[in-house]
Design a protein around this nucleic acid. Structure first.
Ligand SMILES: [Mn+2]
Ligand SMILES: [Mn+2]
Ligand SMILES: [Zn+2]
Ligand SMILES: [Zn+2]
Lengths: 156, 156
DNA sequence: GTATAATTGAAAATGGATACCATTACCAAT
DNA sequence: ATTGGTAATGGTATCCATTTTCAATTATAC
Protein backbone atom coordinates (compact mmCIF):
# COMPACT_ATOMS: atom_id res chain seq x y z
CA UNK A 1 0.00 0.00 0.00
CA UNK A 2 1.25 3.50 -0.74
CA UNK A 3 2.58 5.32 2.27
CA UNK A 4 1.64 8.72 0.92
CA UNK A 5 -1.99 9.25 0.01
CA UNK A 6 -2.29 11.63 -2.92
CA UNK A 7 -4.63 14.42 -2.07
CA UNK A 8 -7.10 15.75 -4.55
CA UNK A 9 -6.12 19.38 -4.21
CA UNK A 10 -5.82 21.87 -7.02
CA UNK A 11 -2.09 21.28 -7.16
CA UNK A 12 -2.25 17.51 -7.52
CA UNK A 13 -2.55 17.72 -11.28
CA UNK A 14 0.45 20.00 -11.57
CA UNK A 15 2.57 17.35 -9.95
CA UNK A 16 1.52 14.42 -12.06
CA UNK A 17 1.67 16.63 -15.12
CA UNK A 18 5.24 17.55 -14.33
CA UNK A 19 6.24 14.00 -13.64
CA UNK A 20 6.65 14.66 -9.93
CA UNK A 21 5.25 12.66 -7.08
CA UNK A 22 2.91 14.29 -4.65
CA UNK A 23 4.34 12.86 -1.47
CA UNK A 24 3.29 13.48 2.09
CA UNK A 25 6.04 15.99 2.84
CA UNK A 26 5.25 17.91 -0.32
CA UNK A 27 1.56 17.78 0.37
CA UNK A 28 1.93 19.04 3.90
CA UNK A 29 4.34 21.80 2.93
CA UNK A 30 1.83 23.02 0.38
CA UNK A 31 -0.93 22.89 2.95
CA UNK A 32 1.10 24.98 5.35
CA UNK A 33 1.69 27.54 2.62
CA UNK A 34 -1.94 27.46 1.62
CA UNK A 35 -3.09 28.26 5.14
CA UNK A 36 -0.39 30.81 5.85
CA UNK A 37 -1.32 34.41 6.28
CA UNK A 38 2.26 35.60 6.61
CA UNK A 39 5.42 35.15 4.60
CA UNK A 40 6.99 32.00 5.98
CA UNK A 41 10.65 31.10 6.15
CA UNK A 42 11.88 27.59 5.47
CA UNK A 43 12.23 27.07 9.19
CA UNK A 44 8.73 28.36 9.85
CA UNK A 45 7.43 25.79 7.42
CA UNK A 46 9.64 23.09 8.86
CA UNK A 47 8.31 23.71 12.35
CA UNK A 48 4.71 23.76 11.20
CA UNK A 49 5.06 20.55 9.24
CA UNK A 50 7.07 19.02 12.01
CA UNK A 51 4.21 19.30 14.47
CA UNK A 52 2.13 16.92 12.38
CA UNK A 53 4.82 14.85 10.71
CA UNK A 54 7.83 14.88 13.03
CA UNK A 55 9.89 12.83 10.66
CA UNK A 56 9.98 15.38 7.85
CA UNK A 57 13.45 16.87 7.62
CA UNK A 58 14.54 20.43 7.08
CA UNK A 59 16.47 19.40 4.01
CA UNK A 60 13.30 18.17 2.39
CA UNK A 61 11.61 21.44 3.16
CA UNK A 62 14.35 23.33 1.34
CA UNK A 63 14.30 20.93 -1.57
CA UNK A 64 10.54 20.98 -1.86
CA UNK A 65 10.46 24.75 -1.78
CA UNK A 66 13.01 24.87 -4.57
CA UNK A 67 10.86 22.50 -6.56
CA UNK A 68 7.70 24.47 -5.94
CA UNK A 69 9.42 27.67 -7.01
CA UNK A 70 10.68 25.96 -10.12
CA UNK A 71 7.17 24.69 -10.84
CA UNK A 72 5.86 28.21 -10.46
CA UNK A 73 3.56 27.37 -7.57
CA UNK A 74 5.52 29.33 -5.01
CA UNK A 75 7.37 32.63 -4.93
CA UNK A 76 10.64 32.98 -3.07
CA UNK A 77 11.08 36.38 -1.49
CA UNK A 78 14.08 38.06 0.08
CA UNK A 79 13.16 40.96 2.29
CA UNK A 80 16.69 41.43 3.53
CA UNK A 81 16.36 39.89 6.97
CA UNK A 82 18.80 37.12 6.20
CA UNK A 83 16.37 34.36 5.37
CA UNK A 84 14.29 33.61 2.34
CA UNK A 85 10.52 33.69 2.64
CA UNK A 86 7.89 31.94 0.63
CA UNK A 87 4.31 32.47 -0.44
CA UNK A 88 1.97 30.79 -2.88
CA UNK A 89 2.45 32.55 -6.17
CA UNK A 90 -0.34 34.76 -7.36
CA UNK A 91 -1.14 32.63 -10.34
CA UNK A 92 -1.52 29.63 -8.06
CA UNK A 93 -4.30 30.77 -5.85
CA UNK A 94 -6.95 33.13 -7.08
CA UNK A 95 -4.91 35.57 -5.11
CA UNK A 96 -4.85 39.09 -6.36
CA UNK A 97 -1.46 40.25 -7.48
CA UNK A 98 0.29 42.32 -4.88
CA UNK A 99 3.53 44.01 -3.95
CA UNK A 100 5.20 44.57 -0.62
CA UNK A 101 5.82 47.24 1.94
CA UNK A 102 8.70 46.26 4.22
CA UNK A 103 9.35 47.75 7.65
CA UNK A 104 13.07 48.10 8.24
CA UNK A 105 12.43 48.42 11.95
CA UNK A 106 10.67 45.15 12.74
CA UNK A 107 10.72 43.31 9.39
CA UNK A 108 6.96 43.35 9.20
CA UNK A 109 5.73 42.98 5.64
CA UNK A 110 2.49 44.41 4.32
CA UNK A 111 0.92 43.20 1.10
CA UNK A 112 -0.68 45.93 -0.90
CA UNK A 113 -2.74 45.82 -4.05
CA UNK A 114 -3.19 49.51 -4.70
CA UNK A 115 -1.84 50.91 -7.94
CA UNK A 116 -0.89 47.44 -9.06
CA UNK A 117 -2.46 47.94 -12.44
CA UNK A 118 -0.60 51.18 -12.97
CA UNK A 119 2.61 49.59 -11.79
CA UNK A 120 2.20 46.66 -14.11
CA UNK A 121 1.42 48.91 -17.01
CA UNK A 122 4.51 51.04 -16.52
CA UNK A 123 6.66 48.00 -15.90
CA UNK A 124 5.39 46.48 -19.09
CA UNK A 125 6.36 49.53 -21.13
CA UNK A 126 9.77 49.66 -19.52
CA UNK A 127 10.26 45.98 -20.05
CA UNK A 128 9.59 46.26 -23.74
CA UNK A 129 11.99 49.14 -24.14
CA UNK A 130 14.80 47.68 -22.07
CA UNK A 131 14.50 44.28 -23.70
CA UNK A 132 15.16 45.92 -27.01
CA UNK A 133 17.85 48.31 -25.88
CA UNK A 134 19.97 45.79 -23.99
CA UNK A 135 18.81 42.66 -25.80
CA UNK A 136 17.79 41.40 -22.40
CA UNK A 137 15.04 38.82 -21.98
CA UNK A 138 13.14 40.04 -18.95
CA UNK A 139 11.33 37.35 -17.01
CA UNK A 140 10.53 39.04 -13.76
CA UNK A 141 10.25 42.37 -12.06
CA UNK A 142 10.27 43.78 -8.59
CA UNK A 143 8.67 46.80 -7.02
CA UNK A 144 8.93 47.27 -3.29
CA UNK A 145 8.85 49.99 -0.67
CA UNK A 146 10.89 50.17 2.51
CA UNK A 147 10.16 52.28 5.54
CA UNK A 148 8.83 52.29 9.05
CA UNK A 149 5.51 50.83 10.06
CA UNK A 150 3.03 52.51 12.33
CA UNK A 151 4.47 51.05 15.51
CA UNK A 152 8.12 51.48 14.61
CA UNK A 153 7.60 55.18 13.99
CA UNK A 154 6.42 55.70 17.53
CA UNK A 155 9.10 53.53 19.04
CA UNK A 156 12.47 55.00 20.08
CA UNK B 1 51.58 63.28 13.97
CA UNK B 2 48.54 61.63 12.47
CA UNK B 3 49.29 58.37 10.74
CA UNK B 4 46.43 58.79 8.35
CA UNK B 5 46.47 61.91 6.26
CA UNK B 6 42.95 63.18 5.83
CA UNK B 7 42.30 63.68 2.21
CA UNK B 8 40.59 66.75 0.95
CA UNK B 9 38.01 64.84 -0.99
CA UNK B 10 34.36 65.71 -1.22
CA UNK B 11 33.61 63.27 1.53
CA UNK B 12 36.10 64.55 4.07
CA UNK B 13 33.65 67.10 5.40
CA UNK B 14 30.95 64.52 5.84
CA UNK B 15 33.20 62.64 8.20
CA UNK B 16 34.23 65.46 10.43
CA UNK B 17 30.68 66.76 10.38
CA UNK B 18 29.41 63.41 11.60
CA UNK B 19 32.03 63.13 14.29
CA UNK B 20 33.81 60.31 12.52
CA UNK B 21 37.50 59.99 11.83
CA UNK B 22 38.62 59.78 8.24
CA UNK B 23 41.24 57.09 8.63
CA UNK B 24 43.35 55.45 5.99
CA UNK B 25 41.22 52.31 5.67
CA UNK B 26 38.09 54.38 5.31
CA UNK B 27 39.76 56.70 2.84
CA UNK B 28 41.01 53.86 0.67
CA UNK B 29 37.70 52.02 0.75
CA UNK B 30 35.98 55.15 -0.50
CA UNK B 31 38.56 55.56 -3.22
CA UNK B 32 38.00 52.04 -4.41
CA UNK B 33 34.27 52.66 -4.54
CA UNK B 34 34.81 55.96 -6.28
CA UNK B 35 36.83 54.36 -9.04
CA UNK B 36 34.65 51.28 -9.40
CA UNK B 37 32.66 50.73 -12.52
CA UNK B 38 30.92 47.61 -11.28
CA UNK B 39 29.00 46.68 -8.17
CA UNK B 40 31.61 45.51 -5.72
CA UNK B 41 31.25 42.97 -2.95
CA UNK B 42 32.93 43.41 0.40
CA UNK B 43 35.57 40.95 -0.66
CA UNK B 44 36.13 42.73 -3.96
CA UNK B 45 36.78 45.88 -2.01
CA UNK B 46 38.94 44.08 0.49
CA UNK B 47 41.14 42.67 -2.25
CA UNK B 48 41.46 46.01 -4.00
CA UNK B 49 42.37 47.83 -0.80
CA UNK B 50 44.63 45.01 0.24
CA UNK B 51 46.87 45.48 -2.78
CA UNK B 52 47.84 48.92 -1.56
CA UNK B 53 47.43 48.54 2.19
CA UNK B 54 47.98 44.86 2.95
CA UNK B 55 47.29 45.35 6.61
CA UNK B 56 43.68 46.43 6.25
CA UNK B 57 41.41 43.65 7.42
CA UNK B 58 38.21 42.32 5.98
CA UNK B 59 36.42 43.09 9.21
CA UNK B 60 37.20 46.75 8.79
CA UNK B 61 35.87 46.68 5.27
CA UNK B 62 32.56 45.33 6.51
CA UNK B 63 32.43 47.81 9.35
CA UNK B 64 33.32 50.74 7.15
CA UNK B 65 30.73 49.79 4.58
CA UNK B 66 28.11 49.67 7.30
CA UNK B 67 29.17 53.11 8.39
CA UNK B 68 29.13 54.51 4.89
CA UNK B 69 25.68 53.11 4.28
CA UNK B 70 24.50 54.61 7.53
CA UNK B 71 26.00 57.95 6.52
CA UNK B 72 24.18 57.77 3.24
CA UNK B 73 27.33 57.80 1.14
CA UNK B 74 26.99 54.24 -0.09
CA UNK B 75 24.13 51.99 -1.17
CA UNK B 76 24.06 48.35 -0.20
CA UNK B 77 22.52 46.13 -2.85
CA UNK B 78 21.41 42.53 -2.78
CA UNK B 79 21.05 41.00 -6.20
CA UNK B 80 20.42 37.53 -4.84
CA UNK B 81 23.80 35.97 -5.52
CA UNK B 82 24.54 35.40 -1.86
CA UNK B 83 26.69 38.42 -1.20
CA UNK B 84 25.94 42.08 -0.70
CA UNK B 85 27.21 44.60 -3.22
CA UNK B 86 27.99 48.25 -2.82
CA UNK B 87 28.03 51.40 -4.89
CA UNK B 88 28.38 55.07 -4.15
CA UNK B 89 24.90 56.38 -3.60
CA UNK B 90 23.44 58.57 -6.27
CA UNK B 91 23.30 61.60 -4.07
CA UNK B 92 26.98 61.21 -3.31
CA UNK B 93 28.42 61.48 -6.74
CA UNK B 94 26.78 63.58 -9.35
CA UNK B 95 25.69 60.21 -10.62
CA UNK B 96 22.42 60.07 -12.39
CA UNK B 97 19.84 58.00 -10.59
CA UNK B 98 19.49 54.54 -12.00
CA UNK B 99 17.90 51.16 -11.49
CA UNK B 100 19.10 47.66 -12.25
CA UNK B 101 18.65 44.86 -14.72
CA UNK B 102 19.89 41.58 -13.26
CA UNK B 103 20.80 38.50 -15.29
CA UNK B 104 19.78 35.36 -13.43
CA UNK B 105 22.10 33.34 -15.61
CA UNK B 106 25.46 34.96 -14.95
CA UNK B 107 24.62 37.58 -12.28
CA UNK B 108 25.66 40.39 -14.57
CA UNK B 109 24.04 43.66 -13.57
CA UNK B 110 23.19 46.47 -15.94
CA UNK B 111 22.48 50.00 -14.76
CA UNK B 112 19.76 51.73 -16.69
CA UNK B 113 18.52 55.26 -16.55
CA UNK B 114 15.63 55.03 -18.99
CA UNK B 115 12.16 55.81 -17.72
CA UNK B 116 13.61 56.80 -14.37
CA UNK B 117 11.60 59.99 -14.32
CA UNK B 118 8.40 58.14 -15.02
CA UNK B 119 9.27 55.56 -12.43
CA UNK B 120 9.97 58.17 -9.83
CA UNK B 121 6.78 59.98 -10.63
CA UNK B 122 4.65 56.88 -10.22
CA UNK B 123 6.54 55.82 -7.14
CA UNK B 124 5.96 59.21 -5.63
CA UNK B 125 2.22 58.98 -6.11
CA UNK B 126 2.10 55.48 -4.71
CA UNK B 127 4.24 56.46 -1.78
CA UNK B 128 1.93 59.25 -0.83
CA UNK B 129 -1.12 57.05 -1.00
CA UNK B 130 0.36 54.07 0.83
CA UNK B 131 1.87 56.25 3.52
CA UNK B 132 -1.59 57.51 4.30
CA UNK B 133 -3.43 54.22 3.98
CA UNK B 134 -1.09 52.15 6.14
CA UNK B 135 0.39 54.95 8.19
CA UNK B 136 3.71 53.77 6.89
CA UNK B 137 6.68 56.12 6.64
CA UNK B 138 8.29 55.18 3.35
CA UNK B 139 12.00 55.90 3.15
CA UNK B 140 13.11 53.91 0.18
CA UNK B 141 11.89 52.10 -2.88
CA UNK B 142 13.06 49.44 -5.22
CA UNK B 143 12.40 48.76 -8.87
CA UNK B 144 14.34 46.02 -10.57
CA UNK B 145 14.10 43.64 -13.51
CA UNK B 146 15.37 40.09 -13.70
CA UNK B 147 16.01 38.08 -16.82
CA UNK B 148 18.64 36.75 -19.16
CA UNK B 149 21.34 38.88 -20.71
CA UNK B 150 22.33 38.74 -24.34
CA UNK B 151 24.96 36.06 -23.85
CA UNK B 152 22.97 33.90 -21.47
CA UNK B 153 20.11 33.69 -23.93
CA UNK B 154 22.34 32.18 -26.58
CA UNK B 155 24.02 29.81 -24.18
CA UNK B 156 22.73 26.23 -23.94
C1' DG C 1 52.71 64.42 27.53
C1' DT C 2 48.37 61.90 29.49
C1' DA C 3 43.74 60.61 29.45
C1' DT C 4 39.90 59.02 26.86
C1' DA C 5 37.34 57.13 23.50
C1' DA C 6 37.30 55.54 18.75
C1' DT C 7 39.16 52.40 15.56
C1' DT C 8 41.41 48.39 14.09
C1' DG C 9 42.51 43.36 12.81
C1' DA C 10 43.04 38.41 13.85
C1' DA C 11 40.61 34.70 15.16
C1' DA C 12 36.51 32.48 16.48
C1' DA C 13 31.62 32.15 16.20
C1' DT C 14 27.31 32.43 13.84
C1' DG C 15 23.59 30.91 10.93
C1' DG C 16 21.10 30.09 6.69
C1' DA C 17 21.65 27.23 3.01
C1' DT C 18 23.68 23.30 0.52
C1' DA C 19 26.30 18.81 -0.43
C1' DC C 20 26.74 14.34 0.58
C1' DC C 21 25.19 9.68 1.06
C1' DA C 22 23.03 5.77 2.80
C1' DT C 23 18.23 4.55 3.12
C1' DT C 24 13.48 4.33 1.72
C1' DA C 25 9.29 4.75 -1.27
C1' DC C 26 7.22 4.34 -5.48
C1' DC C 27 6.04 2.18 -9.85
C1' DA C 28 6.09 -0.59 -13.88
C1' DA C 29 7.41 -4.88 -15.67
C1' DT C 30 7.92 -9.24 -15.03
C1' DA D 1 4.33 -11.32 -5.15
C1' DT D 2 9.01 -10.13 -6.66
C1' DT D 3 12.19 -7.38 -8.72
C1' DG D 4 14.88 -3.57 -10.47
C1' DG D 5 15.23 1.19 -11.59
C1' DT D 6 14.50 5.77 -10.29
C1' DA D 7 12.74 9.41 -7.39
C1' DA D 8 12.56 11.13 -2.89
C1' DT D 9 14.01 11.44 1.84
C1' DG D 10 16.52 12.84 6.19
C1' DG D 11 20.50 13.22 9.14
C1' DT D 12 25.04 15.01 9.18
C1' DA D 13 28.78 17.46 7.65
C1' DT D 14 30.09 21.36 5.26
C1' DC D 15 30.10 25.79 3.09
C1' DC D 16 30.60 30.61 3.21
C1' DA D 17 29.27 35.45 3.89
C1' DT D 18 28.87 38.05 7.73
C1' DT D 19 29.25 39.12 12.96
C1' DT D 20 31.13 38.92 17.30
C1' DT D 21 34.86 39.14 20.44
C1' DC D 22 38.74 41.17 22.43
C1' DA D 23 43.26 42.82 22.95
C1' DA D 24 46.09 46.20 20.69
C1' DT D 25 46.58 50.47 18.26
C1' DT D 26 45.39 55.11 17.02
C1' DA D 27 43.35 59.69 16.97
C1' DT D 28 41.69 63.54 19.48
C1' DA D 29 40.82 66.33 23.78
C1' DC D 30 42.93 68.02 27.74
MN1 LIG E 1 3.08 38.83 -0.12
MN1 LIG F 1 24.14 50.41 -10.00
ZN1 LIG G 1 7.93 47.99 12.11
ZN1 LIG H 1 23.91 36.57 -18.23
Amino acid sequence: MPKYGRGSCWWAGRFRGGGYRLTMPRQSILEVLDNASKHLSAEDIYLAVHKIYPNVGLTTVYRTLDLLVQMGLVSKLDFGDGRARYELSESSKGVKQHHHLVCTGCNRVIDYTDFIDEEIKLLGRIEKELSKKFNFKITNHLIRFYGLCNECQNKK
